[in-house]
C-alpha cells in the first residue's frame, strides 16, 4: 500500500498468509513487529537511513513463505486448543442440561442414558489429556499442525458419538414419550444443544483448514 513503511508492508503480507484465531494471530504479529522495529532501530543507530534500515531488518527476518509456514504451526496449535476447550465445556453443559430428563421406560433407555454418561466421562478424560499433553509434543517439526489435526479428529469423533448416542435417546423419547420431548424445557435444551453443535462443527472444520494453511 502507498505510504506504508517496508515493515508495515511485510507484516501486512505475512498477516494475509496466516489463518487462525484472531487473538493468537495478533499476538504473533505484534511480537514480529517489535522484532522488526528493534532491528531497524539498531541499523538507524549505526547510521543507515530509515529506508535502508527497514529493508535490512525485513531481509534478516526471512522470506515470507518460510516465516509464514513457521507461524502457521503456532496458529494450528491455538486453533486446536481453542476447539478442545470449547468441546469440553460444551459437553459438560449439554450433559448437565440433559441429565435426568430421559424416560425411565422401557428398561433399555436408562441403561443407554447411563452408557452415554460413562462415554462422556471417557471423552472428557481423553480430551483433557490431549489438551494438556498435545501442545507439548515438540520433537516433530510439524508438531503444531499435528496437534491441530489431532484436535480436529478428536472433536469429529466426539461430535459423531454425541449425535449417535443423544440421537438414539431423543428418538427413543419421541417414540415412547412424545409429550416429554415436546415440553418447553426439553425443546429449549434441544435448541441450545443444536446451536452448540453447529458452532463446534465450524470450529472442528477450522482445525483442519488452519492446520493446512500457509
Amino acid at each position: 500500500m502507498a505510504g506504508q513503511s517496508l515493515i508495515d508492508d511485510y507484516l501486512d503480507r505475512l498477516g494475509a498468509r496466516l489463518d487462525g484465531p484472531r487473538g493468537a494471530k495478533a499476538d504473533l504479529l505484534a511480537e514480529a513487529r517489535n522484532g522488526l522495529e528493534d532491528a531497524a532501530s539498531c541499523y538507524r543507530d549505526a547510521g543507515f537511513p530509515d529506508a535502508t534500515a527497514q529493508a535490512r531488518a525485513v531481509a534478516e527476518f526471512g522470506p515470507l513463505p518460510l516465516i509464514a509456514d513457521e507461524y502457521q504451526e503456532e496458529l494450528a496449535v491455538a486453533q486446536g486448543a481453542r476447539t478442545m476447550r470449547a468441546l469440553l465445556a460444551a459437553m459438560l453443559v449439554v450433559h448437565v442440561l440433559f441429565m435426568g430428563r430421559w424416560p425411565t421406560s422401557p428398561s433399555w433407555v436408562p441403561v443407554l442414558a447411563t452408557a452415554v454418561n460413562y462415554a462422556w466421562v471417557v471423552v472428557a478424560v481423553l480430551g483433557v489429556l490431549a489438551l494438556v499433553g498435545g501442545p507439548r509434543l515438540r520433537r516433530c517439526q510439524r508438531s503444531g499442525r499435528s496437534f491441530g489435526r489431532l484436535a480436529g479428529s478428536f472433536s469429529t469423533g466426539a461430535l459423531t458419538a454425541c449425535v449417535v448416542l443423544q440421537g438414539t435417546l431423543i428418538t427413543a423419547t419421541a417414540y415412547f414419550n412424545l409429550g416429554l420431548l415436546l415440553s418447553p424445557a426439553i425443546l429449549a435444551t434441544l435448541g441450545i444443544g443444536l446451536v452448540v453443535m453447529v458452532r463446534l462443527v465450524g470450529m472442528t472444520r477450522r482445525c483442519f483448514t488452519v492446520s493446512a494453511a500457509a
Binding site: 527476518f61 526471512g62 522470506p63 513457521e70 503456532e74
Partner: peptide, 17 residues
C-alpha cells in the same frame, strides 16, 4: 539464521514447558 524463525521457536519451547 532468519531472525523471524526465532519467535515461533520460542513459542514452541513455551509449549514444551
Amino acid at each position: 539464521l532468519p531472525t523471524g524463525t526465532v519467535y515461533p521457536a520460542l513459542r514452541r519451547l513455551e509449549r514444551a514447558g
